[in-house]
Design a binder for these strands. Sequence first.
DNA 1: CGGGATCCTTATGGATACTG
DNA 2: CAGTATCCATAAGGATCCCG
Lengths: 143, 143
Amino acid sequence: MATATASERREEARAAYNAFMKGCPTNLLLSRISDKWVGLVLSALKERPQRYSDLGRRIAGVSQKMLTQTLRTLERDGLVTRTVTPSVPVRVDYALTPPGASLATLFSAVKEWAEEHIEEVVEARERYDTEAGAVAAAGAQSP
Amino acid sequence: MATATASERREEARAAYNAFMKGCPTNLLLSRISDKWVGLVLSALKERPQRYSDLGRRIAGVSQKMLTQTLRTLERDGLVTRTVTPSVPVRVDYALTPPGASLATLFSAVKEWAEEHIEEVVEARERYDTEAGAVAAAGAQSP
DNA sequence: CGGGATCCTTATGGATACTG
DNA sequence: CAGTATCCATAAGGATCCCG
C-alpha cells in the first residue's frame, strides 16, 4: 500500500532521533565509558603500559573476546596504542595515549562523585523499598 | 591439586568479580548514568520541575515505558521527587532533589569533556577505519 | 601468545493494549 | 493524564573452537 501508516511515520521519527543521538558527543562518550570493561582497562593502563595477557590476568573475570573488543574500540578511538613485537611468541603491548589518559582522569572524577554520594543513594533506595506497601495515598501524611 | 580446570577457575573468578562489581559505588553510578534516558531526564528537570507529559513531549522519542521506568529508578535512588496532585485529571510533577541536581552537574562535566575531546576521537576513528579498509570494518563497530 | 569467527544466552528497550 | 502489563526484537556479553 502506498499509504504511509502512522506506525511507519513513528518509526521514521524514531530512526531520525536515534541518528541524532548517535552523533551527539555526550552519547558517544557515555556509550564508551559505560562499557563494562573500559573503566578497568583504563585504570589498569593508567598505572603502566601492559601486555595483553597481563591485562587479562589483572582484570580477572574478563573473557578474551571482551578484552580484545574493548581494546580494539579504545585503539580505534585513539585512546590506547597497540604495539606488536613480532618475536617468536608474539608480544603485544598496550598503553594510554594522552587523550586516553585524560579520559582516565575523567573516570576518576566520576569515581570520586560515586564514592561521595553513593551512601545517600543506597539509603534512599532502602527507604523506598521499605515503604513499598504504603505508596498509594498521596495525602497520607495529613498535617 | 590442579584438577580444577581452567574454565572452572575462570568461572569462579568471574563470579567473585561480579559480586565485587555490584557493590562497587562507581559501577552503581555508571549503570545509572549510562541509562539511555537518564541524561535527558536529568537535564530536562535541571531547567525546571516538570510534569510527566511535559517530559514525554520534551524528550521526543522516549516510550512511556522507558520514561516511567527511568523516573521510577531515579525516584527510588532519591534523585528526583514525585508529587501527585489528585485533581480531576491526575497531575504528577517531577523535580530534582539536591543529590539529583548534583548528579546533573556531574553530567555536565562529562558532557563538557565529551565536547572538548570528541573531535580527536572521531578523527582517530576515521583514520583507523581508513587504514584498516574493508578488513576490520566489519568486526568492530560500536554505537 | 594474541587473537578471529561462530554460536548461544540473557539483558535492554520498544510496541501495543488496557486501567484508575 | 499517568501510568501498568504483556509480548517481542535486538544487541551486549560470554563460551568455544580454531588459527598464525
